[in-house]
């Protein structure tokens, strides 16, 4: 068994999980350092939830091995569970229990010295004072999510696993949530968070992009963007719609996407991109400007190429 360095919190290699004939996670290798906020990105059904569940012992990997907080994910999941806070995608606290009762339940299960005091403290920290006797099922989406996070950090875990914690939450609540995550990380807590939002990805120290069960890119955001090697142009002008239609299937252009009043056009092979757009470069209707690729450009490109490969190997 590999020994994780003390500052590596998650260290897994070759993780594989199949459900029937479907391989949901394929040969995934991941390292997360202590105190980091690690973003986990990928389209729906790409294996993010399955990976998180394997890390906290809810699923047994079919292949691969590794450690979480220094414990073997295959044989020591009961030890991992004591030090991990797992926030599920779907609200999974008891809807028919009040805020206080839910928190006290968590406190008792984790064997805290004084669950009542811990629950009271969490209620104050969450700003839920005066509402502690409200049933959890009656809370709005944003408050449910805050409560769920509060319950996760109540036992003072070393690692937080958050599965799409901000899905369906308004922007203000999302921002507050991320501020809280950063505070926790500053206190030394490691956070692995899956998300669909690019702005959230950009608030992570490092990200990993996973599609069709495979890890396609990982590292700090700017590194991932740089490594993608995309050359992009931003076109503005009139009738961008017909321009987009004309550009879409040209060789060399891997990315043609409307962004509000402009169009993003780009590809990996710089010469090919230049050649493809040459007929419209001097068209007076359009203004062309070289642009930095965004993270979203990179992901869409990664995903479409992955899908093409997937199709090629399948056919």
């Amino acid at each position: 068994m590999m020994e994780a360095a003390p500052d590596i919190v998650i260290d897994v290699a070759g993780l594989t999980k199949t459900f029937g004939a479907r391989t949901v996670v394929k040969d995934l290798t991941l390292q997360v350092r202590r105190g980091q906020i690690y973003g986990f990105l990928g389209p729906n059904g790409s294996g993010k939830t399955t990976t998180i569940r394997m890390l906290c012992g809810l699923l047994t990997p079919d292949g691969g091995a590794g450690t979480c907080l220094g414990y073997d994910i295959r044989t020591q999941s009961h030890l991992i569970k004591r030090r991990v806070g797992y926030m599920t995608q779907r609200f999974s606290l008891y809807q028919d229990l009040s805020i206080r009762e839910n928190l006290e339940f968590v406190g008792r299960v984790f064997g805290l010295e004084d669950p009542r005091a811990a629950a009271r403290e969490a209620i104050d920290r969450l700003g839920l004072g005066g509402r502690e006797n409200q049933l959890a099922g009656e809370l709005s989406g944003g408050w449910k999510q805050r409560l769920a996070l509060g319950a996760c950090i109540l036992p003072r875990p070393d690692l937080l696993l958050l599965d799409e914690p901000t899905a369906g939450v308004d922007p203000k609540a999302r921002r507050d949530f991320w501020n809280e995550i950063h505070d926790l990380s500053a206190q030394g807590l490691t956070v692995l968070v899956s998300t669909h939002y690019m702005d959230e990805a950009e608030r992570c120290h490092e990200i990993a992009y996973i599609a069709y069960g495979e890890l396609l890119a990982h590292g700090p955001v700017d590194e991932v963007v740089r490594a993608a090697g995309l050359q992009t142009w931003r076109v503005s002008g009139e009738d961008l719609h017909s321009l987009a239609a004309a550009l879409t299937h040209l060789p060399g252009l891997e990315l043609v996407a409307p962004f509000g009043a402009s169009l993003h056009v780009g590809g990996r092979d710089h010469a090919a991109v230049e050649a493809a757009i040459a007929p419209w470069r001097n068209d007076p209707r359009y203004v062309w400007r070289a642009d930095e690729p965004t993270l979203e450009d990179v992901f869409i490109d990664l995903m479409s190429r992955k899908r093409d490969n997937f199709r090629d190997t399948a056919s």
Binding site: C56, G57, H78, V84, Y86, T88, R90, S92, Y94, V109
Partner: peptide
């Protein structure tokens, strides 16, 4: 709620 419960010690 089982998913949370199972993730607890």
């Amino acid at each position: 709620t089982m998913e949370s419960l199972l993730a607890m010690p």
